[in-house]
Nucleic acid binder design. Structure first.
Lengths: 344, 344
DNA sequence: TTGTAGGCGTTATCAT
DNA sequence: ATGATAACGCCTACAA
């Protein structure tokens, strides 16, 4: 039955005024040693904890958080992120914080720069960023850093910026996970095809890291597994089927698609009759997962990324503990049977 | 640049007093129609949201949440739950709420009753319960219900109580997921062994639901899969190996352990050379997962259960929205390669 | 029906 | 160096 002491009560106990107690609490000085001691003693004894409500009410500082993410209308992948943000938003606002959500076109660096500027205009206390364009993002983040505005990155790390916190997946490890899945579902893994399928290869680093993990899994086991790698540019006028047929030299036992574009195989009628493992719970991917064309999807849980990213950010801002770190989220394995338990 | 209006400002805008605004806000009546309209109009226009800080400060109600869970020292499974609670606790306390964590022995209904009583003595505003003993839990919950104290159940549902919210897994679906995994990793599934291994069978309903899903998966596909079921009481003096050998009549292609006790197979040197699928990230399970004796574990994410359960509970209490519901968490598939990404 | 004033616990200014 | 006091925004008892 914890009793909550107030400053007034402490003042009475110590036979001083509330002002003096306050000065002791905040180490503002200007208080005689004997009174200071009296107050300190009481504080220690009762383990005083200030009433945060009254505190924030008085200070009346409204922290403003700006969320800057790619438009989910233009890239479905980001939709759950906004869900995660919304989930926290009302809670934040109930505690007197402001949350502004900004979207930029995933196809236009210019638009990103524009929205980044807009975010600066809001003079935020903290920023949550889902970066796509590395150069432009870096410039933006350095500007934030210059102003001492803390930020968190989700989904994609940006090299060359300090004091950032990252929330996302360990991509190398997710590549290993895919490799192990093939190793488990196939009687023998003689030859696998790694498919990097993307509109543009700006974000190639993602795919590379996944491939590194994938390769490492087999090489650590001294397997003679033949791993063919193929870059498919989906914006290429040559049909995807042609690109693949031209590209593969060998019969393959499985296909590892390192992007969220695994559904393109099914959509283009490409069926080598071997298991496919891909990424992300896009509608179309889920469709082919259920029909069996895709065996497993690895889920990067964008919703959780946003949720965690924002939670962490608020902690950093409130406690002024600028402790940069990396938070790696679970690598979630999705099959046709557990997919329903993952709400987007 | 959202502007935050105060009651005072609204009063000025509507040319009434703050008292009148308050009466409109809380629908206390005793306000003339024309003034009411003026105020309502403004409220709607500016989308007024009361400052929760000031509100709770004035009301000075400290909501007390009691968490009642099995002792994690005695059952490792619950450890992550406490982690989930701790994660939220400081946040809650910063907002003027109280969180009391109570533990009971998972082996003693009497101790549960005792701790349940203790929880009542704290006169909580809401309770988060991880139930084990159904009869005793039901009695406790009915007592809470009688007092109008809202509660949430995590992990285990308790039949016969109303207005509860449940956060946990869809066990039937998790059984289906296990079935599908076997179907994916085995060239053909002729015969599987379903192993219910537990100290006591008080919580048998868990295992049954998992088995139902498991069976359904195969029967829906008109498979002739032979599914043998075996109840192994680990507290039985007869060795587990003996119980199994005596129990199985057929060669099996896989073993589905419906409890968190899959590690007992490895620990007792039982290796039929077929894939094993079990539940929960206990240390020992992880050990055998990494060594390959266990192929997959299904994770019930106790940490998330507690976290979600407590979050929901606070929402219900704060908003007085008693909306009972079931929240089903993801059925997480864990392999030796993605296990490291799941922090306990 | 309407308005006023006091106070929740903390902070910070202003006299003393 | 110290203490009194006025806010922060909301609620409510009481006065008008």
């Amino acid at each position: 039955m914890t009793k909550f002491y107030t400053i007034k009560e402490i003042a009475k106990l110590a036979e001083v005024s509330t002002g003096t107690v306050d000065r002791v609490l905040h180490k503002r000085g200007k208080v005689s040693p004997d009174k200071a001691d009296r107050v300190e003693a009481i504080l220690k004894k009762i383990d005083y904890k200030p009433n945060q409500l009254a505190r924030s009410l008085k200070l009346n500082k409204r922290y403003r958080f700006v969320i800057l993410l790619p438009d989910d209308e233009l890239d479905e992948y980001w939709k759950p992120c906004f869900a995660g943000v919304e989930e926290l938003k009302s809670n934040f606002e109930a505690n007197g914080m402001l949350v502004d959500v900004l979207k930029y076109s995933p196809h236009s660096p210019d638009n990103f720069v524009e929205m980044a500027q807009k975010s600066m205009d809001l003079s935020p206390d903290a920023v949550l960023l889902g970066a796509l364009f590395l150069k432009e993002s870096r410039e933006y983040l350095q500007k934030l850093e210059g102003k001492g505005i803390p930020f968190n990155l989700i989904n994609t790390e940006v090299e060359g910026v300090n004091f950032s916190t990252f929330v996302g997946q360990n991509l190398v490890q997710s590549g290993r996970t895919a490799a192990h899945l093939f190793d488990t579902i196939l009687p023998q893994v003689k030859s696998v095809l790694v498919l990097h399928m993307e509109e543009e290869f700006e974000n190639a680093i993602h795919m590379q890291q996944k491939e590194i993990g994938f390769q490492a899994y087999f090489s650590e086991r001294n397997r003679t597994t033949n791993i063919q790698t193929l870059n498919i540019k989906t914006s290429n006028p040559e049909s995807i089927a042609d690109q693949i047929n031209r590209g593969i030299s060998d019969k393959v036992d499985g296909i590892f698609v390192t992007t969220s574009k695994a559904f393109l195989l099914g959509e283009n009628g490409i069926d080598l009759g071997v298991p496919v493992i891909g990424y992300d719970l896009l509608e179309k991917n889920i469709h082919y997962l259920k029909s069996g064309k895709i065996k497993f999807l690895i889920y990067q849980n964008p919703r959780l990324q946003a949720f965690q990213g924002l939670s962490l950010l608020s902690e950093q801002v409130m406690k002024k503990t600028q402790n940069p770190m990396e938070v790696f989220l679970p690598i979630e394995i999705i099959s046709s049977e557990n997919v329903s338990s993952y709400r987007s």
